[in-house]
Design a protein around this nucleic acid. Structure first.
Lengths: 237, 237
DNA sequence: GCGATAGTTCGGCGGCGGCCGTAACGTTCC
DNA sequence: GGAACGTTACGGCCGCCGCCGAACTATCGC
């Protein structure tokens, strides 16, 4: 059974500011070293190391040693979903919003990864495109791929690694407050975009940058083009 | 924005065993008094009062005063979803399972509410029935009502309170480790069962008991009948 | 009114746990 | 081999927070 103690233990692991920083930093699915995470959490390396050991012991993160580095990543998509739902509650708990600024945030808002799929303006614009074309039915709590959508993605040559069906789910995002596409379909689409070189991961953050070939592809396939500073990606009218 | 501190704060609220007990006790959507919650958490009333004040201040629970009682309930379905995802992670974190016994647990496993929908064996059996008849497509991460399903529920006279579409989502449950039906459809179905007197809430727990008229209705409409002790509800072959 | 019950507030105790200094250990690079 | 970097281990400090005893407030029933 799921004991109360075990639930409390998981929650309290995420309940420490330093550990929460690290977990959120890992939310994009990258593998980061202890040093990077220590800097992100603003604590000494030894402290970070201790935290990471606890997180690993509880199964929240996995560690892969490589050379003199140890790479840490979230152990599963479920962990990311849990953090996501904590963020949702945190967002509506306080007076919320308190909109933010700064160039780094602007890049994040434009396009970023959310564990394994694309979020931010770009993620929302892509989802809007799929909805408008009838490929996906989307609302706050459910998302469904239509027949035309299945055909569309098959034409794209985008398949699940194994033969599991490409289901999807909505993901309500903090920056856009709109649902975008997550689940296996969202992950496959994100992977495809990276594989094709349409987007590139930024070096030290969750932000994604769109390459020239990506701009062409997004325009041609999704009707998604560059917009204004406040809406960096939008659906062509 | 969602600050790291606010995420950590929410998580640490759920990270204390006493508060976690109370929150999980409220998972079925009932409104409980401070005293009941104090007993559930095994702490003195003053302690519970302090915890509940914190939970209320953070917006996790709402308090309604009525006479000399103060009724507490989860503030929203989002809070319940957050707790649900914490339970999922807790379940797979430890060696998991550690199956459980006791008559109280047996009742809970048979049928209970999970915030606003039906869970336990009964919930899974109902979901199985809907899937088998092609009314719903269900997997781990997505759930969709089919046309025949929409017609079926319309015949049942089961509608959303307002005219929002009856979408649904899967809910992976700790006792059955199977997906069952949540979301607006799950909530509407649960409400319908209660309204029709097919099930009744137990007095002091999340358990549901099925009435004689409920047995007839579940058999006729869903092909769900009483089974063995270990599988109290099952689909008629 | 008065006692009984439900609930909150206050104060002080006690312990857990996060933090860093120091130091040892392991790996990598030159 | 030795220096540099990164991670791990230990010890002690400090602060936060959960806990309960006791006192205070509010509501109900007679």
């Amino acid at each position: 059974m799921v004991t109360i103690a075990s639930v409390a233990e998981i929650a309290s692991l995420a309940g420490d500011p330093a550990r929460a920083s690290m977990l959120l930093e890992l939310m994009d699915g990258r593998a980061l070293t202890s040093g990077e995470l220590a800097r992100a959490a603003n604590v000494a390396p030894q402290t970070a190391s201790g935290h990471l050991a606890k997180l690993a012991k509880a199964g929240l993160v996995t560690i892969r040693a490589q050379g003199r580095h140890r790479y840490h990543r979230l152990a599963s998509a479920r962990i990311a979903e849990m953090l996501e739902s904590l963020m949702k509650v945190a967002a509506e708990s306080r007076g919320a919003s308190a909109l933010r600024t700064g160039p780094r945030d602007a890049n994040l808002r434009a396009a970023r990864t959310c564990y394994d799929h694309i979020a931010g303006r770009l993620g929302v614009a892509l989802a809007d495109s799929l909805v408008e074309r009838g490929h996906v039915v989307l609302d706050d709590e459910s998302a469904t791929l239509t027949n035309s959508g299945a055909a569309f993605f098959a034409r794209l040559g985008l398949n699940a690694p194994d033969e599991t069906p490409l289901t999807c789910r909505p993901c309500l995002d903090w920056s856009e407050r709109r649902s975008h596409l997550a689940g296996r379909l969202g992950a496959a689409l994100c992977r495809h975009c990276l594989d094709q070189g349409w987007v590139r991961r930024s070096r030290d953050s969750r932000a994604l940058s769109v390459t020239p070939s990506g701009m062409a592809a997004f325009d041609k396939l999704f009707g998604v083009v560059r917009g204004t500073d406040s809406r960096p990606w939008r659906l062509k009218a």
